[in-house]
């Protein structure tokens, strides 16, 4: 249970692009071939290590369907990272990225780290969006980019970990006031407490010391 940091993630993107599958692959190392439409949000968690520090990821997988937007938006503000997913075999999911991004910019905190994922790269023969286009979009909007496959697990670990590494780096650089939990970051044992000294985390109460 003890972690140096806890990061909250959200996964967003059109319905059917494979958000739930990415989460399942990451937490359970399984692939789910049938589309179980997500209703509202679902939760998953996993521990990873960055810079030799245990980091807990709390991940909320949101429903891509339009009708759930008002619910899923409630999760934007408190998230430290977002995986924005499209399906490389369906052009329209790529075309919608701009509107997802706009939503995120409007409701999330400005420091949220966004990872753009072109999913289903195992289906190369049905590709409708080129890798370069993905890269280009990411560059234009200041996102990290990766193509991945929830089916073959290619780049799935990497995507979650790279996002965490980026957040971690931002903490090291002092971008966040990590004592403010509204950034979606919590300090546990051995994490660097924020400038005001993280008074109300459970770990602080237990008297964690920096190692």
């Amino acid at each position: 249970m003890s972690y140096a940091y806890l990061f909250k993630y959200i996964i967003i993107g059109d319905t059917g692009v494979g958000k739930s599958c990415l989460l399942l692959q990451f937490t359970d190392k399984r692939f789910q071939p049938v589309h179980d439409l997500t209703i509202g949000v679902e939760f998953g968690a996993r521990m990873i290590t960055i810079d030799n520090k245990p980091i807990k990821l709390q991940i909320w997988d949101t429903a891509g369907q339009e009708s759930f937007r008002s619910i899923t938006r409630s999760y934007y503000r408190g998230a430290a990272g977002a995986l924005l997913v499209y399906d490389i075999t369906r052009r329209e999911t790529f075309n919608h990225l701009a509107s997802w991004l706009e939503d995120a910019r409007q409701h999330a905190n400005a420091n949220m780290t966004i990872m753009l994922i072109g999913n289903k790269c195992d289906l190369a023969h049905r590709r409708a969006v080129s890798t370069e286009e993905g890269e280009q979009f990411a560059k234009e909007h200041g996102l990290i980019f990766m193509e991945a496959s929830a089916k073959t697990a290619q780049n799935v670990e990497e995507a979650f970990i790279k996002t965490a590494a980026t957040i971690y780096k931002k903490i090291q650089d002092g971008v966040f006031d990590v004592s403010n939990e509204s950034y979606g970051i919590k300090v546990g044992y051995g994490g660097i407490p924020g400038p005001s000294g993280g008074r109300d985390g459970p770990s602080a109460a237990a008297g964690g010391c920096c190692s």
Binding site: S70, I71, S74, R77, G78, H107, S182
Partner: peptide
């Protein structure tokens, strides 16, 4: 549920 940040 429809009010952004309402629950927050």
């Amino acid at each position: 549920l429809t009010i952004p940040r309402g629950i927050t």
